[in-house]
Write a protein that binds this DNA or RNA. Structure first.
Lengths: 352, 352
DNA sequence: CTGCTTTTGTCAACCGGTTGCCAAAAATTG
DNA sequence: CAATTTTTGGCAACCGGTTGACAAAAGCAG
């Protein structure tokens, strides 16, 4: 049984002696030390660096820990090491279904790697996002930003503090996971070209959205290849209502097929056009983006370019955890492929 | 400038002297103490118990803290106090849109009250849920369980450790937030009765779902009042696919109106009936429950009994935070009202 | 068997805050 | 002005782990 070498007032009291362990107080390494007959530092080493103690001592300590139903106090461990086995995920809008598979993917990886996910949202505001990020940084080991709205410099500044991974945007000097829009868009435009469409409208997303620009560039490149005409229309917001509001512009554009920045715009557009007596896809084809929850509820169900959002979330979490464990790439972009999901909202145009 | 009274080896070194504060090291209360010319314990008091130091000293310390861009280390604070200003939320299925607004409501309240939300999911498994709960309990101040799948005894055991609030279920001895199904269901049944329906089918949710039983009881009570016939049908799972699979039973039941355990079942049912050439609502009325994201994407848009899920989330978070601050009710149920949202999927039956 | 090297457990300082207790200073009362 | 009470800042122990340094024990080579 260990005794303090110099039991005068200046020597820290044995905490286990101090606390009665009756009732619901949880066991500490001092309790284990007492039962196992070793020093608390030996217990700490046994639990966090198993090879650093002898097998015999290791077994004594593990048995005592099991007997006491010991669980490490995460604050006590975090204070000297700074490690909490948590990471943060900030999404732009928690009710936007684009993010739910991202969250699901990140959560799945977190659980597999014995980490806890902490969720926050930015409400589409760069300032709120930065505030949430700084606040999370105090307690988490690393951070994932999904469709971040803050500028690149702020993202890099955060990444100087702790590892950061970005989803749906490329930031120089920071590791990113980005859907490769080209494959899915190429498939979409090829499908529309094959169905006889000649003029395609792209309904853009928020002006500050990096991904909306990439998608527009993808649409242009694919249309150029298929020798189709591409026209760009703006939307006021990336929501169902925003899609409704673009219906008039879409009609006026003369396009026979529409590709939208996201599924919500496509769904709103479809609803408004149908309310105006226009038949989808006979009179106009509509293709959305992301394949969110509910995209197949519409009549006809929405053709869309699926972003593998679960893979994005899981991929970002894996990159972050690899960085935390010293095995990751500190910069560069991981691309995940998009693909066309053909449903009923796109097809051959039937009436001129 | 404070000096240690006895600067021998046994006296703890001044940590500020120890650390060079160059570069990215963050300021601590010892740095503030040095600048303000007070003891670190005075700084701690000034920052966490402002009235306990004199106004003059308070200002010195606040000015120094601002100058150093000081932020409290949450682990250091949590170690002696056990407080982290976080709470956990466990949902059954993170991609089930029922939880979107619950999460949003909880997150909004968290932000307003200067707390951080930690999200986890149980994947509909009681064992996984209990594991996640125990793990979260180590670091959060309290916990919200949304549609929990574990049994009442386990919930009460968790609540003995730290405050717990339950959503969508009543547990004796634990504070709960539950939608009051009666108002919304009464409105729904009244509406159907007014439209001439006489026989109503209820498509139930998971066998272990407390809420499904309450909804069935609500349907029965409302039908009894309106002198309608109520028949109960089982589903294999509470999903769109589960709804599709009940279409045959619904047809066979002879009911002219269907109320489902949730919107997903209603949407699947509608899709399958429409695929069979049955017109909604002319030949059969369909009413869902919860008013989830996407419920109005269908054609016709889904009539549903709206659970105010955002209010549930916010209400649960408020109850939890009130408990944490000693002002809350330690048990009992907070009811939030449901209401009928009439859309196009229910109406007068046109053909016998 | 001796000298050298490696292993292993202990000591105690530390991480960055909180807080009970105490004494000095300030304020109040008679 | 003196005695008493209240206020305020400092001391140091503490929260529950981690870990560098050190010394004793164990193992190995000559």
């Amino acid at each position: 049984m260990t005794e303090p070498k110099t039991p005068d007032a200046a020597t820290p009291a044995d905490p286990a002696k101090k606390h009665g362990r009756d009732g619901k107080s949880n066991a500490t390494i001092y309790d284990i030390a007492r039962i196992a007959g070793v020093n608390a530092s030996t217990v700490s080493r046994a639990l966090s660096k198993p090879g650093r103690v002898s097998p015999k001592t290791q077994k004594l300590i593990e048995d005592a820990a099991a007997e006491l139903n010991y669980h490490v106090n995460p604050f006590a461990r975090a204070l000297p090491t700074g490690k909490t086995n948590t990471f943060g995920l900030i999404v732009a809008d928690i009710t936007n279904p684009t993010f739910f598979d991202i969250i699901r993917g990140a959560e799945t990886t977190a659980t597999e790697r014995d980490y806890t996910l902490v969720l926050a949202e930015s409400a589409e505001s760069p300032a709120t996002e930065l505030t949430a990020a700084r606040r999370l940084m105090a307690t988490v080991d690393g951070l994932i930003l999904a469709s971040p709205r803050m500028d690149d410099d702020n993202i890099r500044a955060l990444a100087r503090d702790k590892p950061v991974v970005v989803i749906n945007r490329e930031v120089e000097g920071v590791p990113c996971v980005v859907p490769d829009v080209h494959k899915g868009l190429s498939e979409a435009v090829r499908s529309l070209a094959g169905n006889g469409h000649r003029r395609i409208a792209y309904v853009a997303g928020p002006p500050q959205s990096w991904m909306s620009e990439r998608r527009w560039e993808g649409v242009q490149a694919a249309c150029e290849w298929s020798r189709l005409e591409a026209v760009r229309l703006e939307s006021t917001k990336p929501t169902v209502d925003g899609g409704r509001q673009t219906a008039r512009d879409v009609r006026a554009s003369g396009a026979t097929a529409v590709l939208t920045y996201n599924d919500l715009l496509a769904i709103g557009l479809m609803q408004e056009l149908q309310a105006a007596g226009i038949t989808v896809p006979d009179q106009i084809s509509i293709v959305g983006f992301d394949d969110i929850f509910g995209a197949d509820f519409t009549t006809p169900p929405l053709t869309t370019v699926r972003s593998p959002l679960g893979e994005c979330g899981a991929g970002a979490a894996t990159r972050l955890l690899d960085l935390l464990h010293g095995t990751g790439e500190p910069a560069g972009t991981l691309s995940v492929e998009t693909e066309l999901v053909l449903r009923g909202s796109s097809g051959r145009i039937l009436s001129a």
